[in-house]
Amino acid sequence: MSQTNEQEPPSRDDLRINFFRPRAGFMRKEVTIIWITLAAWAIMTFGMPIHLALTHSDPTRTLAEVPYIFGIPAYFWFSGQFLILWFIFLCFIFNVLIDWLSSSYRRRR
């Protein structure tokens, strides 16, 4: 859909910057990467408490029913340990993608 736009860089007089309507070319790709990372960040961080809030309201029943991992409830391990790893992973992937994007644009210039 944006193929035609990408061929022609925005004119020098167009100074608009808007996260929701990124400029064609580098910025549009960058914003796509940002959106993907942010989605992966938000869903994992806030998805779990929302899920827990919706499904688990009774302490004794909850702890009897939820799956366990490493001897503790899986959600507990997820929040206490896994998510930090996930954040590190997200930063890693983001950096790889941005490195790739900026080097490909630098070559083009």
């Binding site: 940002i34 942010l38 960040w41 998510l83 954040f87 983001f94």
Partner: peptide, 11 residues
């Protein structure tokens, strides 16, 4: 205090 760094880096 950890996830904030993702936000900072990405945005």
């Amino acid at each position: 205090w950890t996830g904030g760094y993702v936000l900072l880096l990405v945005l």
